[in-house]
Each structure stands twice: as structure tokens, then as C-alpha cells.
Design a protein around this nucleic acid. Structure first.
Lengths: 202, 202
DNA sequence: CGGCGTTTTGAGAGAGCTCAACATCGGTGG
DNA sequence: CCACCGATGTTGAGCTCTCTCAAAACGCCG
């Protein structure tokens, strides 16, 4: 079940921004949380010296400013990096829905908890130095129900960004793994060959 | 306000584990979420081939298995990496408290949302290749109210792990930044010199 | 005092980054 | 239909930066 119920969906307000346009600023009144429909939104904090530190780049499908539900003001600046469309879910509408139906509040919490775990996993992956082991970690945690096949929803370039590798490094690593027989590639899928199976019966 | 109210605190059940001991397994009935009191707990998923992929290593102060509140079973294995003490907050007690007081549920959601943002920021930081820029990012986002001073709560070794650098690399980077006059170190604090101020009046 | 963990500096090697060239594919328009 | 374009995918070669291994100073605590 999604936390975006028909009622919340209906309360959503779309807005389009040009590249470089500001969506909200640190300290401005928190109106609600956002979902990116298209384009990229950059969340940044600007130092007193004027340099900006990027906190997160949200792209299509991402939500951001979830914490605004429980805060009077936004905690950073949000600026469109490209021409972008966002959907605002007003605080009041969301909180009212949470109050009306505990199920919805639960779905929202579950989504957040799920996201926390997924982000922790991504961070853990970055602690792996070797490109090959990083790819192994990614594959192992993205196998389908059969336990051997990984479907690549996105392009390999996107996967590379996820992994914190250049796309060149990823391509190379994958072709090495393929020629070592550790994986098999076909179309949009990668199949893991049981390389490190513990000694089968003789 | 913390989501761990006196009532929830009182419902907590402490348990001590030896290194290597299992706390719960994938598929076992979810009893609640945990907080690490001391030691380290490793969350892993084991592939059919028997190799394990680490999802997260929780240490003192961390909570984990938050998603278990809304799931019937655990989604991974939890194994003590060292001798460890954990506190279990039983699902029923937590959910009852959430129902009794919406404020508590809100505090929990706010904590999750805050954590999501913090993890996203950590991940964003790892996308920065250069050690120096990564340190700059860390410092910029951890300055105190004065906007110039960063208090180091933990040891530099711990900070290095946070940044995804070896401690040697961090020490070197810091001393280079210090000798370049970009920062000043004293005791447990780092002060940022307004290095990249835009051209002051002549 | 002696042991342990943190902090610091040195030297060398290697893994991944960078730059570059080219193939491939899908869409677009003459 | 074909030429062109942009984005993804692929491979090559060199270089830089960080990791690794090593050693030593320092501070803290029993």
C-alpha cells in the first residue's frame, strides 16, 4: 500500500521550474513535501562564504523534504538543476490524511524505514574499495526471486553512478567478470553463475 | 522530543550476545526493533551460494530493524560482530504507544525523516572523488552556530571512516589544509578560515 | 613504567580516474 | 530511405591520487 492515497494525490499541486530557479530556501515556511515528476532538484546548504554544499540531488520519482511535515521551516535550499516539474503535497492535507487513517501514516513510516535501510546499504556498499566486490555486493542484493538473475531497470551508466564508479570502470569490471565466467550477460539481464559455491559432493 | 518515551523505555528488553551469535534470521517472526547499547551488530543477507552481503553494521546508539514494526518477519540476518548488548523494543509496546499518543508517532517519523536526509547527505559526500573536497563538504555541513567552527565529537579515525577515507589520508589532508591556511586546528576543534570568500573590496 | 589506541609522517604500488576514440542504437527530419 | 544526431555502450593507454605497509611519537590509563 502506498502512502499517496487518492485524497493526498488529489491535494497535490504541480509546479514547473526553469533550470536555476529556486523552489524554497532555508528558513522559509515549510509548505509540505515534494515529489519530483521530471528533471532534477538540488538540495544545498550555502555557507556564509557563499560556497554551496550539495545534500542531495532528487530526480524523477524521488520525494524530498519529508522532514518538513514536522518542521515549521525548510532546512536547506532547493534549486532546480534542470528544467523540472515537482508536485507539492501540502503539509495540512498529508497530516489530515494521517489522522483520518492510521494505515496511511503507517504506510508512510514503512516507506521511510525502508528507505533508511536502503540508504544504509548503499553507504555500506561504498565502503567496499574494490570495484569488483562492489559490483558483487550490488548484484547479490538485487537478484530476482530465482536468486540468480538481476534485471537492469536503468541504464548501466545509472548503475555506475549508484555504485560510485565511472561508467568505464563498471563496463570493464562487468566484462572481466563475464570472461571469468562469474556472470553472464544477456539483453537487460545479468545472471550470476554459482562461482563461489562451497565444495559440492564429490 | 524523543520517540523513546518512558513507557517505551520501560518496555525495552536488554539482551547480551557473544561475538558471532545470531540475534535474528531472515524470515523469523519480527518481534520489534532494536537499539545497540554496546558492541556491533552486523545485518547481512546470505546468498544461496552461502556468501554474505553486509547491509549495515550497527554500533552503539544505532537503532535497526525499524521496518519490522510494519512487517511480520525480519528481512535479513542480524549477527553480533563483537560481544554486544542490544535493547529490544517490542512491536506491540511501540505501536500501542504510537496509538496512545500521536505526538510519539510523529517524533518517530521525524527521526526517520531526519535520518533519511542525513544518509542521503552521506551518500552524496561519497560521490566526491577528491579527499580534500570531501573533507570540505563534511566541515561545511558540520559547522556550529558560528558558521566557522567544527567540534569533533569522535576521534579522527571515526571521522575518516565516515568520510570513506583511510585515517592516514584524512590526517594528511587536514595538515595540508592547515598549512595552506584553509583551516586551523586546536584541541578538538577545527576552524574554517574564510578561504573562498569572493573578492573583498580592494 | 608499560601497554594500547590515536595521531603523524614516509615511501611505494596499484586501482580506478581521465581523456580519447569508436561502435551501436533509436529517434528525427530531409 | 538515408543521413544525422545524441545517448549509451565499449575498449585503450597513461596518470594521479589514495591505499597499503611501515615506523615512530604521543597521550592516556591501569
Amino acid at each position: 500500500m502506498s502512502w499517496i492515497t487518492p485524497a493526498i494525490q488529489a491535494a497535490g499541486i504541480e509546479r514547473t521550474l526553469d533550470a536555476g530557479q529556486t523552489l524554497f530556501r532555508l528558513g522559509s515556511r515549510a509548505t509540505g513535501l515534494y515529489e519530483v515528476v521530471s528533471g532534477k532538484i538540488r538540495l544545498v546548504r550555502v555557507s556564509s562564504a557563499g560556497s554551496e554544499a550539495v545534500l542531495f540531488v532528487a530526480s524523477a520519482g524521488h520525494t524530498f523534504a519529508e522532514a518538513s511535515l514536522y518542521s515549521a521551516t525548510y532546512q536547506c535550499d532547493a534549486i532546480a538543476s534542470t528544467k523540472a516539474t515537482v508536485r507539492l503535497y501540502p503539509k495540512a492535507a498529508v497530516l489530515a490524511e494521517f489522522q483520518r487513517s492510521p494505515k496511511v501514516a503507517q504506510a508512510f513510516m514503512a516507506m521511510l524505514a525502508q528507505q533508511v535501510m536502503s540508504l544504509r546499504t548503499g553507504l555500506q556498499r561504498r565502503n567496499i574499495r574494490s570495484a569488483r566486490d562492489r559490483v558483487r555486493h550490488y548484484l547479490a542484493l538485487n537478484v530476482g526471486p530465482d536468486g540468480r538473475t538481476v534485471a537492469l531497470a536503468t541504464t548501466l551508466k545509472d548503475v555506475a553512478r549508484d555504485l560510485g564508479l565511472t561508467h568505464e570502470a563498471l563496463y570493464r569490471t562487468l566484462s572481466e567478470m563475464a570472461s571469468d565466467g562469474e556472470i553472464k550477460r544477456s539483453d537487460g539481464k545479468i545472471t550470476i553463475r554459482a562461482a563461489n559455491r562451497l565444495s559440492p559432493l564429490p
